[in-house]
Design a protein around this nucleic acid. Structure first.
Length: 550
RNA sequence: GCGCCCGUAGCUCAGCGGAUAGAGCGACGGACUUCUAAUCCGUUGGUCGCAGGUUCGAGUCCUGCCGGGCGCGCCA
């Protein structure tokens, strides 16, 4: 029996109590059943009676009794106790509990998938780093967390398109081009330019690829450096993201919005709806109508579109492509954008928080020997994705970035994440998977086949703990999706790995030597295989490998 | 000044209103003739920043303060 099945059984028991007239209360849609911290409180517990006591106008323990009486008749439920102020502590039949191993092994890669967001089209935009330099640490956080979130949302049924918005338009690109040109010509980088080893590298490449570029008139040369430089930077960004395990469905070029007239179209649509006005020679969007602290210039008085104009057109484009939900992930240094973006959303007649959602990731620091790293060999000024990957590898980098809430600032201790010991959470989890793979290989060598499962044999405390942990997985994934918090999956996997290691320590799985193969050996093989499935599926949701050998 | 995020064990961090606040690391002490010891067991360790409030129940929700980070352009 899965926790979900049990939860609906509890809900049915509440309904039955209501139908019989014993309780007068609205039956809640969602009934929470959780694994209690101590096993003295049963296999599962629910506080539903405490929640219903007030609306029912009855003492909690009476409500609890009314539900318990009916729950006791449910098949697979061995005992229901009313405890403390009115908790229901539920103990399952060992067979009902052990059956979960079969459920998981049978579902295999589908275990953990649910349908909470089935039918929803979601556009998930993240990283979107400027093509004026390598992906920095902030972008890297989202490359890991955003990719994991995409996988998690797909696991709950959403149809997700991941997207990278490529800011290849505007003044910053000009600065980038001028910087390249300056370095190629052996001049100093302009004061407002970009510095770093990568600028020299790309400048050299362009000079090699376009031999006479430096003999062109300066504005023509700059255009060559712009085009070639952006192409090269873009290619490199894509490559490092790919090596990082994050591939996007769509790379969207800001420039296309300007060239296609999409920006003008978005502005005139908003003007038609009365949200646009002219002042001081500029075109403004009246975002203060929808809670922004000031109105925003959309087209500057010099006729050039302001940055936000691309965002207007881009948002509109996404909605016209049929996405119900547009999610954008930004660094904490851009949180000031939320107000105007949400106002823009309302200007289009949409619902902020529903059609448009903005997630903010706090800043990341790398730490070595207790000191924060400030400089990058590569970029000169910022730490890059490659710096992190070079230091700890892709799996550890992704995992380190994902396992903490994006709301928290994060210090990544490079020494810790390079250690191949149990200090390192990613190894702790991966090791559990490798250990299982090894065990299963040995089982194969012994010619063991799982055969029929005797679920009633999995009664050891450690087996029971493990089954309980495995049963939580779909709920954890669903919660991670709902709250947009992939770190929950990582934390769950750490707990599961620990539970497995403890099981492994206490319960011999394979027969020793000439020992006869028993049903218990087989049942444990089912359980081990189920654990492998969950660890593999979970790591898969994070984009972290699940190695068979370590 | 205004806005957002954070403040939980010595360190890094979990904890979508529930029972005795957890994990890893650190420190100390144990466990390999047998499935991977990258593991496990035990000990140590807490005014959940402070003060009020809501609630049967608050680390969790609300208000105010303190401390840290980030942001408040006709920049992108």
């Amino acid at each position: 029996m899965t926790p979900v099945e049990l939860a609906s059984a509890v809900r049915a028991a509440v309904r039955a109590a209501v139908d019989s007239g014993e309780l007068s209360v609205q039956v809640p849609d969602d009934v929470k059943v959780e694994r209690p911290k101590t096993r003295e409180h049963g296999d599962y517990a629910t506080s539903i009676a405490l929640q219903l006591a007030k609306p029912a106008g009855r003492p909690p323990r009476q409500v609890a009794e009314a539900v318990a009486t009916r729950l006791r008749h449910v098949e697979g439920v061995a005992a229901v106790d009313v405890a403390g102020p009115g908790f229901l502590n539920i103990t399952l039949d060992s067979a009902a509990q052990g059956e979960l191993a079969r459920t998981i092994v049978t579902a295999d890669s589908d275990y953990g998938r649910t349908s909470a967001m089935t039918g929803q089209k979601v556009n998930l935009e993240f990283v979107s780093a400027n093509p004026t330099g390598p992906v920095h640490l902030g972008g890297t956080r989202w490359a890991a967390v955003g990719d994991a979130l995409a996988r998690i949302l797909r696991a709950v049924g959403a149809e997700v398109t991941t997207e990278y918005y490529f800011n290849d338009h505007g003044a910053q690109i000009d600065r980038f081009a001028r910087s390249l040109l300056a370095r190629a010509a052996g001049e100093d980088i302009p004061a407002d330019g970009y510095a770093g080893a990568y600028i020299d590298e790309i400048a050299t490449q362009i000079v090699a690829a376009v031999p006479h570029v430096l003999e062109l008139p300066r504005d023509e040369a700059q255009e060559v450096f712009r085009r070639e430089g952006v192409d090269r930077m873009f290619a490199e960004i894509k490559r490092s993201l790919h090596e990082f395990g994050t591939d996007f469905d769509v790379f969207f070029h800001e420039n296309s919005l300007h060239e296609s007239g999409a920006v003008q179209r978005a502005v005139s649509m908003l003007r038609k709806q009365g949200h646009v006005f002219d002042k001081d020679g500029a075109v403004w969007l009246r975002t203060t109508d929808f809670g922004d602290d000031k109105d925003r210039v959309v087209i500057r008085s010099d006729g050039n579109p302001a940055y936000i104009s691309g965002d207007l057109a881009y948002y509109l484009d996404k909605r016209e492509r049929g996405f119900d939900r547009v999610i954008i992930m930004l660094g904490a240094d851009h949180h000031g954008y939320i107000g105007r973006m949400m106002a823009m959303c309302e200007c289009f007649g949409d619902k902020p928080g529903e059609n448009l959602e903005i997630l903010i990731g706090q800043l990341v620091n790398l730490v070595r020997d207790g000191q924060p790293l400030r400089m990058s060999k590569r970029a000169g000024t910022v730490i890059t994705m490659e710096d992190l990957v070079d230091a700890v590898g892709v799996d550890a980098a992704r995992y380190a970035l994902i396992r903490s809430s994006a709301d928290s600032q994060l210090d990544i201790d490079l020494d810790l994440w390079t250690r191949h010991t149990n200090d390192n959470p990613v190894f702790y989890v991966q090791y559990a998977h490798a250990r299982i793979a090894s065990l299963l290989r040995n089982a194969g060598d012994l010619g063991l086949d799982r055969g029929d499962l005797r679920p009633d044999l999995l009664v050891h405390d450690r087996e029971s703990d493990l089954l309980g942990a495995l049963g939580e997985f779909p709920r954890v994934v669903a919660t991670a999706a709902e709250l947009r918090e992939p770190h929950r999956v990582a934390r769950y996997l750490e707990a599961l790995a620990g539970t497995y290691h403890r099981f492994y320590d206490a319960c011999r799985v394979l027969p020793r030597g000439e020992e006869e193969v028993t049903d218990l050996h087989m049942a444990r093989l089912w359980l081990v295989e189920a654990t492998r499935v969950v660890l593999g599926n979970g790591l898969g949701l994070l984009g972290v490998t699940a190695p068979d050998r370590m």
